[in-house]
Amino acid sequence: MRILVALNGSPSSIHMVREAAQLARNTWADVTLLGITPVDSSPPNHNGGEPPKGFRQVMEGFLHDFLEMVNDSESPYPQSLTEYKWKDADKGAWDLDCQQPAPGKKQLTLRMRAGNAAKIILGHAQVLESDIIVIGCGKGVGCTWDGSLEVPRTIVNNASCSVFAVKEEKQPRMVVCCLDNDNVSQASLELVNQLVTIYHAELGLVGVTGAEGLKEEVDRKMGQLLDYYAGSDIRAWVQLVEASSLESFIAQAAQKDLVALWMGKQSFLDKIFFRQRLGKLIETAQSSVLILR
């Protein structure tokens, strides 16, 4: 798995780095920490391969914290910051890479960029073929990037991979996964599995019903998922929700639970949660939201 962690350089993003580190530790994923600073805030003397000092300190701190979180004898990641070195890079782009990654180790790199955050994040997700983008959402209601709602909204709406919008300091009691089709990838199953483990949460499998009830293939898939998670000793609850009530169900669930939406190509979740509504969901949710693609 490849995880892209989008960071805006705010020290409060540390909770996100910790969440991503927990996820990485459980999945042995390749991880890119992507810090983005607005062009205007870059000091004029940032040339010569050196990123803006304050921003660099925060981001190196994040990398350090990440390494601390995953540091154990079986860690697939480098042991300390001393193994890293800045790479010569173009103006507005700085890369901190592990110099000599040991065989079998996973990649953990730091990228720092200046410019349009949404564009940079989506571009990196595509180039790095990320499976999931982790993006911070602050506390409680609202989901902003440097005070703006636009960046998280754009990411959630336009990313072709999964997106995990992380709310700060919120321990969900349940991971509630909604599905309306049987197009569920093994990677997303494993991701949900790990989130349930990390949060010590229960799992809710919610089948979305249409005018003719639950589709046969969704009924079958829910049975398979139930068996899959039972095999992993995860307590899973099934529930059905009519498509017409889905928004209010999710609005309620998102107050206490982590909501995960399987947005397949054949999914009418994609139609129900068209752009504005998906953006609204991550803004109004009290807990984190996971969009599985």
Binding site: L214, W237, Q239, L240, V241, E242, S245, F249
Partner: peptide, 13 residues
């Protein structure tokens, strides 16, 4: 019979 058993998945409504 003493007991009738059937499955009915819980619904939001």
């Amino acid at each position: 019979y003493d007991l009738f058993i059937e499955g009915a998945l819980p619904t939001f409504n």
